[in-house]
Structure formats: structure tokens, C-alpha cells
């Protein structure tokens, strides 16, 4: 059985960033509609990679999903925009624009809760072959890199590029690392990596990457055979927990059998 901790902390836990966000002046900022053909409308809420913008994207996604608007085929939240794929036979683009404006700015309820995942990681060695090089570049020991990486809380800005590939914001500045000059054509499945100011959890698929590999997780963020094929969503929070090679192997076996092997807390807004 998946290990789950479901908390209802109500207003007890409000992270600093959420608190700040709730008062952000961005609320009144204008949104921009961009045409993405006859079946696509991109709602752009900013141009920067930052938490406030991304939080607005996610809140707008939730607010629109709650409306259950006929003709919306799917919505794709990204760093700073929400792509809406729609059927123009069912909903004219102008009507869709009005429906978006009707929920803008998204109210506090839509911004409220989030999930926090704790993702086990086997750092270094074969599992994370760039750990020592990253440490060397920053004048740190590998243990210090692990402590920094596992000591931070991250935000899933978006899932993209490949199934279940999670782009994370919140990498400590001391670990900001330029991308590799020689990208790998294929990295080990479920790698935990960093690149530039970002971090990632890779899916259990061989993907190309120019980011630095710190470790691997037994967690399968994507498994089409599992009851819940996708674990992570944009807006989720992530913490990493170092695990031993033996625990990693045990968890990997359980994960292959369909277990989620990550802990999750649901935190109400």
C-alpha cells in the first residue's frame, strides 16, 4: 500500500512564501492573451520564473477547472502561463477569454492548499555521478551539497518535456550550477538533477539532459501501469530525504510493484 500521511492543518501551517503571495500586488496585474492557433489560447501572467507568477498560473488553472467549462479540452500550466486547448466548435475564443476574465484574479480559495512530497534520494556514486564535481565547483564537500539540496523546500513549477518530468524552483543559491557543456544523450531513469537555478526530478525513462546528476530516487513519478500514473503536479512542494543504498533498493523494488514510496502531506489553504 502506498504510504500516505494526510494532514488537515488548516491555517496552522502557512509558509512564508504563501503568506507573502497572498498579499502580492501581482493580483491586480494584467494578464495577456496570446493566440496559439484556432484551438489554443495562452494566458500569459508574466515573463519571469518566480514563485508568485507560477502560483497565479496554478490558481487560475484551479479556478477554471472548478468552472468545468464546456469546450475546454485541457489546460497546461507552465512557469508563467496557462495554455488552454479548446474546441472552437463548442466555445468561441472570445467567450473563452471572457470566462477567463470572469475568474480573474483567482480568489484565495483557488490558491489555498498544496501537497508536500518527501522524495527519498540515493545521493552520489553511480546514482549521482556529478555529485563530486558539483561539490568541487562550489568548494563544498559532497556531504555539504547533499545537506544543502536535501535541506531546501522546492516548488514544482511545471511538469513538461517528458512524462512526469518535474521542473523545480527553490534550489539554494550555493548550488546554482551552469549546465554541462556536454549534455548526455541519455541519463539514468529517475535521476535527481540540478541545472542553472533549477532542480528536477526525472521520470523513470531514459531522457537526454545537460543537467548535473546528484542522485536517483526509487520514486516513479510516472508509471502508466499504476493506479495513479502521475504523482506530481505543478504547485506541489518537494523535500528530499537521503536514503542508504539498501533502503533505496528496497524502495525501488516496492515502487516497481506499484507502491508510491513517497510520503505526501496535503496542506489546506
Amino acid at each position: 500500500m502506498p504510504k500516505r500521511k494526510l494532514f488537515s492543518w488548516a491555517a496552522v501551517v502557512v509558509s512564508v512564501s504563501e503568506f507573502h503571495f497572498g498579499r502580492s500586488s501581482r493580483m491586480s496585474d494584467a494578464l495577456t492573451f496570446l493566440d496559439a492557433g484556432d484551438c489554443g489560447l495562452t494566458v500569459e501572467l508574466g515573463e519571469a520564473v518566480d514563485e508568485a507568477t507560477n502560483a497565479l498560473v496554478i490558481a487560475l488553472d484551479k479556478a477554471l477547472a472548478a468552472q468545468d467549462i464546456p469546450g475546454i479540452v485541457e489546460m497546461v500550466p507552465t512557469y508563467r502561463s496557462l495554455s488552454i486547448l479548446f474546441d472552437p466548435v463548442v466555445i468561441p475564443k472570445q467567450v473563452l477569454r471572457e470566462r477567463v476574465l470572469a475568474v480573474w484574479p483567482p480568489d484565495a480559495a483557488a490558491r489555498g492548499g498544496f501537497r508536500r512530497w518527501t522524495i527519498p534520494v540515493l545521493y552520489g556514486g553511480e546514482a549521482g555521478e556529478d555529485l563530486e564535481e558539483v561539490a568541487r565547483q562550489h568548494g563544498l564537500t559532497p556531504e555539504e551539497v547533499i545537506n544543502l539540496h536535501a535541506g531546501a523546500e522546492y516548488r514544482v513549477y511545471m511538469i513538461g518535456f517528458a512524462p512526469g518530468f518535474a521542473y523545480l524552483g527553490g534550489l539554494p543559491e550555493k548550488l546554482h550550477t551552469s549546465r554541462r557543456t556536454d549534455p548526455r544523450l541519455q541519463i539514468p531513469p529517475s535521476s535527481i538533477s540540478i541545472g542553472g537555478k533549477q532542480a528536477a526530478i526525472c521520470p523513470p525513462l531514459p531522457v537526454p539532459s545537460g543537467w548535473h546528476l546528484l542522485g536517483r530516487t526509487p520514486v516513479r513519478t510516472y508509471d502508466p501501469a499504476r493506479k495513479e500514473p502521475f504523482l506530481l503536479s505543478a504547485g506541489d512542494r518537494i523535500r528530499f530525504r537521503p536514503v542508504s543504498a539498501q533502503l533505496y533498493r528496497e524502495m525501488a523494488r516496492a515502487a516497481e510493484a506499484g507502491d508510491v514510496v513517497a510520503e505526501v502531506e496535503t496542506i489546506d489553504g
Binding site: G37, G40, T42, A48, T78, Y79, R80, S81, S83, G160
Partner: peptide, 10 residues
């Protein structure tokens, strides 16, 4: 650009 969504025919 900051990565965003891609539709069929982009």
C-alpha cells in the same frame, strides 16, 4: 523564452 506550452501545429 521561458518555457511554455506547445500545441499541435506550433
Amino acid at each position: 523564452i521561458v518555457s511554455d506550452g506547445i500545441v499541435n501545429g506550433s
